[in-house]
């Protein structure tokens, strides 16, 4: 089979870019929901805030695993 195209350089960077799509959408959804919840029920903002950060941290972990594994499996 003839070689049509070749990727050189760090493919880990491309992989990480792909891996960041999901967490990006997820973090966006979390903050969107928080803004919406606060707009509907302003008194609940302090109540829901810790859960925003917990949810943010849990979703963001996926993107950060990408950073860590990118370096672990780069070589």
């Amino acid at each position: 089979m003839p070689l049509l195209a070749e990727v050189t350089g760090s493919t880990a960077a491309i992989g990480y870019g792909l891996a960041a799509i999901g967490p990006g959408i997820g973090v966006g959804l979390i903050f969107a929901s928080y803004v919406q919840a606060t707009a509907r029920q302003p008194e609940s903002s302090r109540l829901t805030q810790p859960f925003v950060w917990i949810g943010f941290a849990v979703v963001e972990a996926l993107a950060l695993l990408g950073v860590a594994f990118g370096f672990i499996w780069a070589g």
Binding site: A57, L64, L65, V67, A68
Partner: peptide
């Protein structure tokens, strides 16, 4: 695992 890696990866990155 995530507790450690989250903090580490943020500072590393």
């Amino acid at each position: 695992f995530t507790l450690a890696v989250r903090l580490f990866a943020n500072m590393f990155a």
